[in-house]
Computed example of a mutant assay.
Amino acid sequence: MRKSLGQLNLRPGERRLVIGVGLLVFLVLNMFLVWPHFSDWQDVRQELHDARLKLRRYEAAIAETPKWEARIRVLESAQEPIPEEDQGTEFLSAIQRQASLSGVTITGSSRMTTRTNNPFFIERSQTISVLAEERALLDFLYRIGSAGSMTRIRGLSLRPDPPRNRLVGNITLVASYQKKSGPAPTHATNQPVATVQTGAPPAVPARAARTASPPASPRNPGTGVVAPANQPPNR
């Protein structure tokens, strides 16, 4: 360092100024380029910790796959699919039955809606207006959730009645019914149909008989005797 500064032929005051400027530049570069990254290692360790936690959660969920598959099989074989024309009546009857058992008064209901865009289930939605005490309403909601047909609560709005003794509100209930699997489509096979022709086949023209006369036997010019056909004439 001294040798480098000595080559510049600087006076002592100028040397001190150059050293001070160099230190200032070094500090500024560290402030903007090095110090902001002091916490990077801590961030990396935190990300690694979060990734390990997520991996453990995924492994735990994958380990429960056989249990959920068994549960799905139990639900699928629990009961036969309800005919589509009886699903609305069965849904309303189940709601009224659970409300009667829980002591909940149904004061009104809206029109039932049906969604069939799911390839496996038919979803029916029903909104009812209820009047009940808090304990009875909780019992009704529990009974509805534990009923069949995958019944669940989609919407709930409650408020106290004017005497503030009971609760008044609207509940939207949804039930999913399994679709019946239709018969496998039959594909028509186009088989050629044999056609039978009746009647005699067309007449075939008879061939003209060919008549060939036998070759004439050669005659011996000297004797006038007819020579056999296979023997040459005598000369």
Rank of each mutant, 00 (worst) to 15 (best):
G148N: 03
G108H: 10
V168Q: 12
R2E: 10
A175L: 01
L48P: 00
V168L: 13
G155K: 15
L92V: 07
Q96G: 05
A175E: 02
P218V: 01
I171Q: 04
P66F: 07
T195H: 01
Q7C: 05
T151N: 01
N234I: 14
L23N: 08
S129M: 01
A203R: 14
N118K: 10
P119F: 05
D139M: 02
P12S: 02
P183D: 08
A63C: 06
A78R: 11
W41T: 12
S157A: 11
R56D: 15
N118C: 00
D43Y: 08
F32D: 12
A227L: 03
E123I: 15
P163Q: 05
E47T: 14
A184Y: 03
A203S: 15
Q197M: 15
R52C: 07
Q231M: 05
A78L: 09
S109I: 03
R16L: 07
G6P: 05
K54F: 01
L23K: 10
A209L: 03
R16S: 06
T198C: 02
S100M: 13
E64T: 03
A60L: 15
S146N: 15
D43K: 07
L131R: 08
Q96P: 03
S93R: 14
S217I: 01
S110C: 01
T211I: 05
R154W: 04
L156D: 03
K180D: 12
Y142N: 13
K180V: 08
D161C: 02
R143Y: 03
E76H: 11
R115A: 09
I122A: 01
V44S: 10
M112D: 02
G148Q: 12
T172W: 01
G148H: 01
F120I: 04
E64P: 09
R115I: 05
Q7F: 13
V225N: 14
A63V: 04
G22K: 00
S217N: 07
I19M: 08
G13Q: 06
R71V: 04
F120K: 11
P36V: 03
I106M: 00
A209I: 01
P185A: 04
A61P: 07
P215W: 00
L53F: 13
N9L: 02
V204G: 13
P183L: 04
P221L: 10
R2N: 11
I82L: 08
S181I: 15
V34R: 04
L55W: 09
V204W: 11
Q46G: 06
Q126V: 05
P36W: 11
R57L: 09
G182H: 04
L33S: 02
N117R: 13
I153L: 11
E59W: 10
V196A: 10
R45M: 15
V226H: 06
T65E: 03
A70Q: 00
S157C: 02
A206C: 06
E69T: 12
S109Q: 15
S93E: 14
K180W: 05
A132Q: 10
P163E: 08
